[in-house]
Design a protein around this nucleic acid. Structure first.
Lengths: 154, 154
DNA sequence: CCCTATTATCTCGCTCAGCAAGATACTTGG
DNA sequence: CCAAGTATCTTGCTGAGCGAGATAATAGGG
């Protein structure tokens, strides 16, 4: 057991920040009568939209780790709330492409925009070398957490 | 709408890292037949243990945002799995103090230890000024996310 | 002291997210 | 044009968490 160095406090801080970000999403969810999964789904959909990719029901479910039944129920909820639309695939009519409603996008930007703005502002208080350290650290954390998935792979 | 500066990519990275950390906890949960809430509960309990504070059922529920019924069910699950013990309060016998089992602590350390170690190692690759920037950034993010709770407070 | 208000936890009945299994609709290769 | 494959939906179920109220124990005024 390492004797509690100052690095561990930073790790603690990292966890606290991650938890707080999660709680912020949860607030968005409950304030809009949604569940955490619904928010995660909207984020996936908006990311795909940014990348100009179509998201089908199947892809969405896979991205969230839901099975087909859960995915159908999820899309039903989001559609009922008016956040997304189901559009049958043009070339392959088995597919259901999920489109995010503009208002849902605006809702998300209105809620997350301020926080994003604050973080951007925060970043601007650092010089380039410090910003590079922050980026590198975040990249490293993400990689380490993701790599912990498949244990002993090269 | 800001025209997509390089800071936004860092924000994106921050979100990705937070998500990945969340998924890591979720893996711990599912690998041990637990739910995300159970893991959060154990973290709260272990944090309290470190600080040498007693955690009652009520405090735990409040920390997790559960009502009394949900808290009872949660403690039942954790107790059934052998991760915690219920101990009636010594001075106030209405209270139920929740104690974490040593094996649950060891389980958590075994799972999260390697990732924590990697992050500590990562930090050691930076000089003191860079580490201060990372700490300051994380602190700022946590504060901003937490402050977004109560909107327009001084 | 005792009786009422208060506090801490638990019990009951319910709602709803997500799962497993299988039905349905559509496509594609032979 | 049909069989195998693929994408989504339907059905029936399990279990986390909620609201309301029961139960148990303490604290304080009379």
């Amino acid at each position: 057991m390492p004797t509690e160095g100052p690095e561990l406090e930073t790790v603690h801080l990292l966890r606290a920040a991650a938890v707080e970000l999660g709680l912020h999403s949860a607030r968005f969810a409950s304030r809009n009568g949604m569940h955490p999964t619904d928010v995660r789904a909207l984020i996936v959909l908006m990311d795909a939209r940014r990348a100009a990719e179509e998201t089908t029901a199947g892809r969405l479910g896979a991205a969230l780790g839901l099975n087909s039944a859960g995915t159908t129920a999820l899309v039903d909820r989001l559609e009922r709330a008016g956040h997304v639309r189901r559009v049958r695939g043009a070339t392959d009519r088995r597919k259901v492409v999920i489109e995010v409603d503009e208002r849902a996008v605006a809702l998300g930007q209105a809620f997350f925009g301020p926080l994003i703005g604050q973080v951007v502002e925060l970043l601007q208080g650092y010089d380039e070398r410090e910003r590079a350290a922050i980026r590198g650290f975040l990249e490293g954390v993400r990689g380490a957490a993701a790599a912990a998935d498949r244990p002993l792979t090269s």
